[in-house]
Protein backbone atom coordinates (compact mmCIF):
# COMPACT_ATOMS: atom_id res chain seq x y z
CA UNK A 1 0.00 0.00 0.00
CA UNK A 2 2.94 2.32 0.64
CA UNK A 3 4.05 1.97 -2.98
CA UNK A 4 0.61 3.05 -4.06
CA UNK A 5 0.69 6.10 -1.78
CA UNK A 6 4.18 6.97 -2.99
CA UNK A 7 3.08 6.66 -6.62
CA UNK A 8 0.14 8.93 -5.88
CA UNK A 9 2.44 11.49 -4.27
CA UNK A 10 4.73 11.43 -7.31
CA UNK A 11 1.69 11.76 -9.52
CA UNK A 12 0.53 14.83 -7.61
CA UNK A 13 3.96 16.39 -7.95
CA UNK A 14 4.32 15.59 -11.64
CA UNK A 15 0.88 16.92 -12.53
CA UNK A 16 1.41 19.98 -10.31
CA UNK A 17 -2.07 21.39 -10.73
CA UNK A 18 -2.20 25.12 -10.05
CA UNK A 19 -4.12 26.27 -7.00
CA UNK A 20 -7.59 27.57 -7.73
CA UNK A 21 -7.59 31.35 -8.01
CA UNK A 22 -10.78 31.70 -6.04
CA UNK A 23 -12.30 28.77 -4.25
CA UNK A 24 -16.01 28.71 -3.69
CA UNK A 25 -18.46 25.96 -3.08
CA UNK A 26 -20.87 24.58 -5.63
CA UNK A 27 -22.84 21.36 -5.54
CA UNK A 28 -23.56 19.63 -8.84
CA UNK A 29 -26.20 17.01 -9.50
CA UNK A 30 -25.73 14.93 -12.60
CA UNK A 31 -28.66 13.70 -14.67
CA UNK A 32 -27.97 11.49 -17.67
CA UNK A 33 -30.67 12.01 -20.27
CA UNK A 34 -29.45 9.75 -23.01
CA UNK A 35 -25.79 10.57 -23.49
CA UNK A 36 -23.34 8.32 -25.32
CA UNK A 37 -21.62 7.56 -22.01
CA UNK A 38 -18.66 9.75 -22.97
CA UNK A 39 -19.75 12.55 -20.67
CA UNK A 40 -20.08 10.10 -17.78
CA UNK A 41 -16.65 8.62 -18.43
CA UNK A 42 -15.07 12.07 -18.51
CA UNK A 43 -17.06 13.32 -15.51
CA UNK A 44 -15.69 10.45 -13.48
CA UNK A 45 -12.18 11.60 -14.34
CA UNK A 46 -12.91 15.20 -13.38
CA UNK A 47 -12.71 14.25 -9.72
CA UNK A 48 -9.53 12.19 -10.24
CA UNK A 49 -6.03 13.56 -9.50
CA UNK A 50 -5.71 14.69 -13.11
CA UNK A 51 -8.32 17.43 -12.96
CA UNK A 52 -9.39 17.48 -9.30
CA UNK A 53 -12.45 19.67 -9.54
CA UNK A 54 -12.65 19.61 -5.73
CA UNK A 55 -9.91 22.21 -5.66
CA UNK A 56 -12.42 24.72 -7.01
CA UNK A 57 -14.89 23.66 -4.34
CA UNK A 58 -16.95 21.77 -6.90
CA UNK A 59 -18.54 18.56 -5.81
CA UNK A 60 -21.08 16.07 -7.09
CA UNK A 61 -23.90 15.43 -4.64
CA UNK A 62 -26.32 12.59 -4.25
CA UNK A 63 -29.61 14.44 -4.00
CA UNK A 64 -31.20 17.21 -6.06
CA UNK A 65 -32.10 18.88 -2.75
CA UNK A 66 -28.41 19.32 -2.00
CA UNK A 67 -27.55 20.70 -5.41
CA UNK A 68 -27.10 24.18 -6.87
CA UNK A 69 -26.52 23.05 -10.43
CA UNK A 70 -28.27 20.40 -12.51
CA UNK A 71 -25.80 18.98 -15.00
CA UNK A 72 -27.75 17.37 -17.83
CA UNK A 73 -25.91 15.19 -20.33
CA UNK A 74 -27.36 13.87 -23.55
CA UNK A 75 -30.14 15.01 -25.86
CA UNK A 76 -33.00 14.25 -23.39
CA UNK A 77 -34.70 11.12 -24.63
CA UNK A 78 -38.45 10.73 -24.42
CA UNK A 79 -38.15 8.31 -21.51
CA UNK A 80 -35.93 10.61 -19.46
CA UNK A 81 -38.09 13.68 -20.02
CA UNK A 82 -40.45 13.09 -17.10
CA UNK A 83 -37.64 12.00 -14.79
CA UNK A 84 -35.67 15.15 -15.59
CA UNK A 85 -38.64 17.36 -14.79
CA UNK A 86 -39.05 15.62 -11.46
CA UNK A 87 -35.39 16.17 -10.64
Amino acid sequence: MLTLLRDLRNLRRSIALPAAASTGSLAIRHVDCGSCNGCEHELTLVSSPVVDMARYGLGIVASPRHADVLLVTGPVTTRMHAALLTA
Binding site: D7, I15, D52, A54, Y56
Partner: peptide
Protein backbone atom coordinates in the same frame (compact mmCIF):
# COMPACT_ATOMS: atom_id res chain seq x y z
CA UNK B 1 -7.22 12.76 2.12
CA UNK B 2 -6.94 14.77 -1.08
CA UNK B 3 -3.16 14.97 -0.70
CA UNK B 4 -2.90 11.27 0.02
CA UNK B 5 -4.93 10.50 -3.09
CA UNK B 6 -2.65 12.58 -5.29
CA UNK B 7 -5.05 15.49 -5.50
CA UNK B 8 -4.56 19.11 -4.63
CA UNK B 9 -7.74 19.53 -2.63
CA UNK B 10 -9.77 22.61 -1.81
CA UNK B 11 -7.94 23.50 1.38
CA UNK B 12 -8.95 22.94 5.00
CA UNK B 13 -11.39 25.86 4.98
CA UNK B 14 -13.74 24.26 2.44
Amino acid sequence: KARLQGRRGAGPLQ
